[in-house]
Simulated scan of single mutants.
Amino acid sequence: MLHYIEEHYSRDIYIDELASLPSLSRSHFCRVFKEFTGVTPIDYLNLYRVNKAADLFQADGCKVIDAALQTGFDNLSHFTNTFKKYMHCTPSVYKRDYDFKG
C-alpha cells in the first residue's frame, strides 16, 4: 500500500482504491493502516506529497504552483494549507528560507 501511494502520489488517490488493494473494507483498511504507520492514509499521502514538494524546491527552485501540481494538488490554497500543516510554514517561506540557507 505504501509503495502504491509512493508510485501514484501525483494523481488523485481514493481510500476505496487503496482498500481494494488488500481486499479490505474501507474502515478496516483505515484501522490497519493507522496501526501499521501511526497515521491515517490521508495524512500519509499528504505528508508524502509535501515532502516531495519540498524536494522540488530544494532541487531546482521549482515555483510553488508547479510543485503543487506535480505533487497531486489541484488547488493552490489546499496545497498551501497542507504544506503549512506539516512543515509549519508556507511553501513560499520554506522556499525563501531554503534559498537563503543554500
Rank of each mutant, 00 (worst) to 15 (best):
Met1Pro: 07
Met1Gly: 10
Leu2Asn: 09
Leu2Met: 05
Leu2Val: 04
Leu2Tyr: 06
His3Pro: 00
Tyr4Trp: 08
Glu7Cys: 10
Glu7Met: 13
Tyr9Asp: 03
Tyr9Ala: 08
Tyr9Arg: 07
Ser10Pro: 00
Ser10Met: 09
Arg11Pro: 03
Arg11Gly: 09
Asp12Trp: 08
Tyr14Lys: 11
Ile15Phe: 02
Ile15Arg: 00
Asp16His: 09
Glu17Arg: 08
Glu17Phe: 06
Glu17Tyr: 05
Glu17Val: 13
Ala19Lys: 04
Ala19Tyr: 06
Ser20Ala: 15
Leu21Asn: 14
Pro22Lys: 05
Pro22Leu: 11
Pro22Ile: 10
Ser23Pro: 01
Ser23Asn: 13
Ser23Phe: 05
Ser25Gly: 15
Arg26Tyr: 07
Arg26Gly: 05
Ser27His: 13
Phe29Glu: 09
Phe29Asn: 05
Phe29Thr: 12
Cys30Ile: 14
Arg31Pro: 01
Arg31Ala: 08
Arg31Tyr: 13
Arg31Val: 13
Val32Asp: 09
Val32Trp: 02
Val32Phe: 01
Phe33Cys: 07
Phe33Gly: 04
Lys34His: 07
Lys34Trp: 06
Phe36Lys: 11
Phe36Gly: 04
Thr37Asn: 07
Thr37Ser: 14
Gly38Cys: 08
Val39Ile: 15
Pro41Met: 07
Ile42Tyr: 03
Asp43Thr: 02
Tyr44Asn: 01
Asn46Tyr: 04
Asn46Cys: 06
Leu47Asp: 09
Leu47Thr: 02
Arg49Ser: 02
Arg49Pro: 00
Val50Asp: 03
Asn51Lys: 02
Asn51Ile: 00
Asn51Gly: 00
Ala53His: 04
Ala53Ile: 04
Ala53Glu: 01
Asp55Gln: 10
Asp55Trp: 00
Asp55Val: 02
Asp55Tyr: 02
Phe57Pro: 06
Ala59Thr: 07
Asp60Ala: 04
Asp60Val: 13
Asp60Trp: 15
Gly61Asp: 01
Cys62His: 08
Cys62Val: 12
Cys62Phe: 10
Lys63Val: 07
Ile65Glu: 13
Asp66Phe: 03
Asp66Trp: 00
Asp66Gln: 07
Ala68Phe: 11
Ala68Thr: 11
Leu69Cys: 01
Thr71Arg: 03
Thr71Tyr: 01
Gly72Leu: 00
Phe73Tyr: 14
Phe73Trp: 09
Phe73Glu: 06
Asp74Trp: 15
Asp74Gln: 15
Asn75Ser: 15
Asn75Arg: 14
Asn75Gln: 12
Ser77Leu: 08
Ser77Asn: 12
Ser77Lys: 14
His78Glu: 13
His78Lys: 15
Phe79Ala: 07
Phe79Met: 09
Thr80Tyr: 10
Asn81Gln: 12
Asn81Phe: 12
Thr82Cys: 12
Thr82Ser: 08
Phe83Ile: 13
Lys84Val: 06
Lys84Cys: 11
Tyr86Phe: 14
Tyr86Arg: 11
Tyr86Asn: 09
Met87Val: 03
His88Tyr: 14
Cys89Lys: 13
Cys89Val: 12
Cys89Tyr: 08
Thr90Tyr: 06
Thr90Asp: 08
Pro91Trp: 06
Ser92Glu: 15
Val93Trp: 08
Val93His: 13
Lys95Ser: 15
Lys95His: 15
Lys95Ala: 14
Arg96Glu: 09
Arg96Gly: 00
Asp97Thr: 00
Tyr98Asn: 03
Asp99Cys: 04
Lys101His: 07
Lys101Cys: 02
Lys101Leu: 10
Gly102His: 10
Gly102Lys: 15
